[in-house]
Design a protein around this nucleic acid. Sequence first.
DNA 1: CTTAAATCGGAACTACGGTTCCGGATACAA
DNA 2: TTGTATCCGGAACCGTAGTTCCGATTTAAG
Lengths: 211, 211
Amino acid sequence: MDHRGTRDVADAKVSSSPAISEHPESRPMRADAMRNHEKILRAAEEIFALDGVMVPIDIVAERAGVGIGTLYRHFPTKEALYDEIVSTRLRALIDTAQTCAKDPIALEGMCTFLHTFALQASEKQDLFDALGQAGIDIKARFSDMLDELTSCMDTMRQRSVEAGAIRDDVETKDILNLVMGSCHAAGYDGDNGASLERLVDIVLTGIKTPD
Amino acid sequence: MDHRGTRDVADAKVSSSPAISEHPESRPMRADAMRNHEKILRAAEEIFALDGVMVPIDIVAERAGVGIGTLYRHFPTKEALYDEIVSTRLRALIDTAQTCAKDPIALEGMCTFLHTFALQASEKQDLFDALGQAGIDIKARFSDMLDELTSCMDTMRQRSVEAGAIRDDVETKDILNLVMGSCHAAGYDGDNGASLERLVDIVLTGIKTPD
DNA sequence: CTTAAATCGGAACTACGGTTCCGGATACAA
DNA sequence: TTGTATCCGGAACCGTAGTTCCGATTTAAG
């Protein structure tokens, strides 16, 4: 026992160059605009991670050192901004999942992934929100990515079951929600990392086949 | 394995007689007023259970067949109404916990309680909200009851540990949050009961001492 | 039946968060 | 340097949810 890992993965930066690609014909975005776009993204990343989806939009603008109007020029909607951030994070998580799903030792991959997953969800409040809490509609927004993620996890689960490593009567989504519960537990104590690892291990113990 | 139970407990009715006790001197509450008080409480119970804390207050009034003004006459605040409902439910849960804490077989009591707890939290959305989600401030409102509940659970946990039945490195609050995670999982599928039992069992397996 | 106190109902007020709009400022090509 | 297309800022607007207020209605005592 002791499946730490958390690898390097899943801490990608939100980037993309809005200057180009939008309308290949027109002039590139003005320098100050690009700078602001970046500042907003940066601020949103920090604030959403800390306070989640519920934070008022003007807080983000303020933090970015930018007016509300400017923010809305770059992102037509609060949701649009939120999407940008969360989908990037989800994308990174999916990449991790895909890697883990290929681990020669199925259970090993599962453990690694769940720990990474838990860490990310507890560090990034927005991700956490998107993954479970909040409105159902928010979930719908990322449904395709969610499906992709779930399907990766299902691969891990199935392979582990076939290897006789975990119980065959547990659904993938159950595992996911159990881990989310762990995040919730660890989150509200300011209790960083330490206990989260332990909780995830409890869940893992629970889904393993009894020796 | 198969610790069902869910006993009879924990389904108490919200009651109390507002007519008396308020001002022992003054006249008793008018008949229609008492009827309305009751109707409001009844409606709130149903709606909060179904939709949680977030439901607009006028929905409750409407359901009770009463004007908003009337509702506010009886409960000066949305929170007041919410308090009434949730604290009654919490009280019932504490009673169950106290009973379970006395079970001669410590682990048995723990299992019974956790299943009851999970069932209640998943059936009564408001209880669920109060216990975890939502704002931290809501939690603060019931802090003394929460403490009482936690202390009961801690008794169970400690006795189980002493009996060598469960791991000694798990905190009470961890257990609670793990179970909440289960509720969350079961809740959003309209998946009633069946899978919830299974999830709680997973958690229980996870916290037991390896054979 | 009369009448005053208690209660009812819902329009209106308040606070808050998202979004729009437009006069003024800025970048940058000519 | 100048002109203009682009961008900035934040006041104002809108919808939503909680709460207050007061004229209309009802209870029940005399």
